[in-house]
Design a protein around this nucleic acid. Structure first.
Lengths: 129, 129
DNA sequence: CTTGACCACGTACACATGTACGCGGTAGAG
DNA sequence: CTCTACCGCGTACATGTGTACGTGGTCAAG
């Protein structure tokens, strides 16, 4: 299923930023980084280059500036990443992770309600589908 | 919060096996590896050494054999790992990940029921606590 | 005592990752 | 035209990771 090399933590952060921006130059990605998680301009540049080498983004020279845009959708990357975590931490089972998230991390009333709605929807789909 | 160096993928697998065994020698960990995910004996050994260096396990010579046991609980590692994933992939929000797990990965009726029960329990806790 | 099985431990090594410098080119300011 | 600010790109390098070999020592069988 997964063909491209997986993303490292750092690469992931840069990819995430690029997804948010849609399309951006090195400088823009660099600038968009949350304060407190600053990294050097050149570092961002390297990450983008590596992301391109791995096939996750595509960069095109527009004038004298290279503009990058994502080639792989966040959903895909998220799925691959989560699949991996699931495999390594829970033997591939999704439910234990859901349980962990709900039990160990605080879920507030609002989120609880959203979850419940989600379950309702799923149940309807099961019945119909 | 997290002080020890994070576990790499491979280290995680070995740690997981050790958690299952509770306490084991290199050979036992090696043998306990699921077929299809075999790795060399020496590789397991190296991982255990590194896990010890990172403070995750503790090995003691019992007779002429080194017996390893986990120093850090799975729950702790899982939490740190998930926190990390959450941070990098979802900006720290737990709900989107739950949503992803429920929507993108198949959850069957049985699991759905379990989830629902979990939510009920949580809701009671919220009301009482 | 000799041989074989087994093990701890040091060491190795290629590739990945995190982080960054510096050269050489160019667009715009003066 | 010259200076400056900026940028692409090649390169670097320490550390992390995946994977493993070989040496030397020890217990057990013969």
């Amino acid at each position: 299923m997964s063909d491209r090399p997986a993303l490292s933590k750092g690469e992931m952060e840069v990819a995430r930023t690029l997804w948010e921006l849609g399309s951006a130059t090195v400088r823009q990605v660099h600038a968009a980084f949350p304060a407190g998680r600053a990294m050097d301009f050149a570092t961002v540049q390297t990450y983008l280059r590596r992301l391109e080498a791995k096939g996750y983004v595509h960069g095109r020279l527009e004038g004298r500036v290279r503009v990058y845009r994502a080639k792989v959708k966040p959903k895909t990357v998220i799925r691959e990443t989560i699949d991996d975590v699931l495999e390594r931490l829970f033997g591939g089972e999704a439910l234990p992770l859901v349980r962990h998230l709900i039990e160990e991390r605080g879920i507030n009333d609002d989120e609880l309600a959203q979850l419940r709605a989600l379950l309702d929807k799923l149940e309807r789909q099961h019945r119909n589908g």
